[in-house]
Design a protein around this nucleic acid. Structure first.
Length: 494
RNA sequence: GGUAGCGUGGCCGAGUGGCUAGGCAGAGGUCUGCAAAACCUCGUACAGCGGUUCGAAUCCGCUCGCUACCUCCA
């Protein structure tokens, strides 16, 4: 009754019904971060988008292997031959071992994502741990005549590849256009065509990240890791490949080329891309220096932030837009998201507290209405993971739940079966699929002080029955009240 | 320049031919000792111009404005 999931496939430029290659198994690969800096709001969108997809696929009963990589090698600072690895550069300026930089920011990334209630992937491979697989892949491509070695580096031969395949099929680019627009500043390039991209780069003497290979001591090219690792863990062709829209070209285009050049597949059946988060209408990004890191959002310490925003506020903010739309950051939007999130969570608590009485005269139209509103929640998700629509539908359903709570709708007039279904679905969608958890804003110590106040009051009025009662309630929480000469305090029960 | 996309009420943000998206903010009301929550009602939103159509925010054309990718990027 939940209908079927459709996803927009960048490869075909249309929405398609999702049909796994080997149901009930689903293989999903998502491009993770290059760990050379703090994760920002933009990173969280990709993580949260595919987290919801991961969760929903599991909710639908699929057995999902979700692979999300950590890039810890290989991304050059620029395309010039003297380019330096981002991580190596960071390591050198920070006087650290490259792997220290990698470990530190990987840990930070995990902390931030955990706060956002993003589930860990099934496998989280690192590029540096798969140098052998990448070298093997290069050998295959060379053997197929689509890569060439020069001065210890190996390049993918785009024009040769384009004879049999279409380089640009994913991003909609045409090779002639690309050639016409090539920048003319790389006169000394060793590449045969400016479109060719590196599979292996020979390291200069001072380059600190290097591995031996048949061609030189060096390091793998930009796009190779994803091809090698997705193939290793998901096979030559799998179901879903995801990532940010900015990776569409050249990164994913090159992945498809590498995959076709080695195992003759498009890598994945469905290519899914999330759009960017903007700030004042501009893409949030490191190069533009207009990004807000997740920890800044959580602690409010950034000049653009009027206040701190909790992880769940951020998560809700992101889910309230469709993943393929740009989403504009603003304090107003975050503040509105906070209130909406609270509203949804209050519904969770209400459902938890509602006890179904004995069934009375069932109002059939009310039942039908509730079932329709519940079904609406799935319609959004099924339509290309439109969480914005699902949240809107949940709010509509919530109105009914709140009316039951206040007594405007009699719970007994809803069939037990319908109510159980509504309750189960609301909770499952909010917590399991959207991944929104209750953040308890209550400061326990403050609350304890308030309760101690009542105790002191009872004591002062010599209401000993009440005193004993309060003491007993504290004891249930494994807390003892301490009456001392100089005052009253509490301590954990020993 | 090439390619892709966007422009929705005070703000955010769905919708893609006819049927209330939703949230936040605002106005009025119900409930209430007060308040809050909750619920109900309300605002005549679709960049502009032209076209197709019985009917367009939704399709087509033009104009204006904005963005992304084409270098690393979630």
């Amino acid at each position: 009754m939940q209908s079927t999931l459709s996803l927009y496939n960048t490869l075909t430029r249309k929405k398609e019904v999702f049909q796994p290659l080997h149901a009930p198994f689903v293989g999903m690969y998502v491009c993770g971060p290059t760990v050379y800096g703090e994760a920002h709001l933009g990173h969280s969108r990709s993580a949260i988008t595919f987290d919801v997809l991961f969760r929903y696929l599991q909710f639908l009963g699929y057995k999902v292997r979700y692979v999300r990589n950590i890039t810890d090698v290989g991304h050059l600072e620029n395309d010039a031959d003297e380019g330096e690895d981002k991580i190596a550069q960071k390591a050198r300026t920070a006087q650290l071992e490259p792997m220290e930089v990698v470990q530190h920011f990987t840990n930070r990334y995990h902390e931030d994502l955990k706060a956002l209630n993003v589930l860990p992937p099934s496998i989280e491979p690192r590029a540096s741990g798969h140098i052998i697989e990448q070298i093997e892949l290069i050998k295959e491509i060379i053997a197929n005549g689509l890569a060439y070695e020069i001065n210890g580096s190996v390049y993918f031969d785009v024009p040769a590849y384009n004879q049999g395949q279409r380089y640009g099929k994913l991003s909609g680019r045409v090779i002639e256009d690309l050639l016409a627009n090539t920048r003319e500043l790389e006169g000394q390039s060793e590449k045969r065509s400016p479109l060719d991209f590196a599979l292996w780069k020979k390291a200069s003497d001072t380059h600190i990240m290097r591995w031996p290979s048949p061609w030189s001591d060096g390091f793998p090219g930009w796009h190779l890791e994803c091809s090698a690792m997705s193939r290793k863990y998901l096979g030559p062709e799998f179901d879903i490949h995801g990532g940010g829209l900015d990776l569409l070209f050249p990164h994913h285009e090159c992945e498809i080329a590498q995959s076709q050049a080695s195992c003759h597949t498009d890598t994945a059946k469905y290519w899914v891309h999330n759009n960017m988060i903007t700030i004042n209408g501009q893409k949030m990004g490191k190069s533009l220096n207009n990004f807000i890191t997740l920890s800044e959002l959580f602690n409010g310490k950034h000049e653009l932030l009027q206040q701190a925003y909790t992880p769940m506020t951020v998560r809700f903010f992101i889910l309230q837009a469709h993943y393929r739309s740009t989403l504009d950051f603003s304090n107003e939007a975050l503040q509105a998201a906070r209130k909406g999130y609270i509203k949804l969570i209050n519904g969770l608590n209400i459902l938890d507290k509602l006890n179904y009485p004995t069934e009375t005269a069932v109002d059939a139209s009310q039942d039908a209405e509730l079932l329709k509103l519940t079904q609406d929640c799935f319609n959004g998700l099924n339509d290309d993971l439109n969480t914005a629509r699902t949240i809107a539908s949940l709010f509509n359903l919530l109105k009914k739940i709140n009316s039951i709570h206040t007594g405007a709708i009699l719970l007994g007039s809803i069939s037990a079966e319908t109510f159980a279904y509504v309750k189960k679905t609301y909770i499952a969608l909010v917590t399991d699929v959207l991944g929104l958890l209750e953040e308890k804003p209550v400061d326990t110590n403050d609350l304890l002080e308030v309760l101690l106040g009542f105790y002191k009051e009872a004591k002062a009025t010599k209401d000993y029955a009440r005193v004993d009662q309060i003491r007993a309630e504290f004891k249930k929480q494994r807390i003892v009240i301490k009456d001392m000469k100089n005052g009253i305090d509490w301590a954990y029960e020993e």
